[in-house]
């Protein structure tokens, strides 16, 4: 059974909109007829801490958290957080990462350096690695705030959920006035 479950991890920094992205993903999976479970930690993590959201879908899902080392896709909103969560991914898994660096407190205060060579480190371990400049594509789509939707579009191509369900999920979860921009951003990410 677990072989048929898709395990997706969304990681980044509190405040980046990871929870909304994982809601849209879960909604799309449900509309496509799958059983879905999702888990994440609220609370302290909202104050700029690391955030990990787990989404699993398939015929029947038990655990709401992805078993360690069984992630199919790591969907990173920030580079250091993407690297931190690589151990959650199965060997040969897929990494879709936003090309963005957000400095943690120790780096802001000049006590540590933001680690270098992260992109190369991910590449060396995971051949299926897509680096997306979410901010730039979002700006091209008409709204820099739609970066998450761009990334979601890029991830969507690697999942067995038809485009119509993604668009329906966006319609449900995104405010009406931002819908067109987000649909455009989604398609641009999907074509990336």
């Amino acid at each position: 059974m677990s072989g048929q479950i898709k395990n997706i991890l969304l990681v980044g920094v509190g405040g980046q909109g990871i929870l909304l992205a994982s809601e849209i993903l879960s909604e799309a999976a449900m509309l496509a007829g799958f059983d879905v479970k999702k888990s994440e930690i609220h609370g302290m993590s909202q104050r700029g801490g690391s955030v990990v959201s787990h989404v699993r879908y398939g015929a029947e899902v038990f655990s709401p958290i992805v078993p360690e080392g069984e992630g199919d896709i790591l969907f990173g909103f920030e580079l250091m957080e993407t690297c931190r969560s690589l151990p959650l991914l199965k060997p040969g898994g897929t990494v879709v990462a936003n090309d963005l660096q957000i400095s943690p407190p120790s780096v802001l205060m000049g006590q540590e350096l933001y680690p270098g060579g992260l992109v190369e480190r991910i590449k060396a371990q995971f051949a299926d690695f897509l680096l997306v400049d979410g901010q730039k594509i979002a700006a091209d789509s008409g709204n820099v705030k739609a970066a998450n939707t761009v990334l979601l579009g890029a991830v969507s191509k690697r999942l067995s959920i038809a485009e119509e369900y993604w668009l329906k999920a966006l319609e449900k979860m995104v405010p009406a006035k931002a819908l067109d921009v987000n649909k455009r951003a989604f398609r641009m990410g999907r074509e990336f």
Binding site: V13, G14, M44, S45, Q46, R47, G48, G49, S50, P67, E68, G69, E70, M80, E81, C83, R84, L86, P87, L89, K90, P91, P104, P105, S106, V107, E112, Y114, P115, R121, Q125
Partner: peptide, 19 residues
């Protein structure tokens, strides 16, 4: 048996912070 896990890399921590 555990799944084969990619070794964790040492990264600066990211604790929560006042806004």
């Amino acid at each position: 048996p555990q799944a084969a896990v990619t070794p964790a890399e040492k990264m600066p921590g990211r604790p929560p912070n006042m806004c």
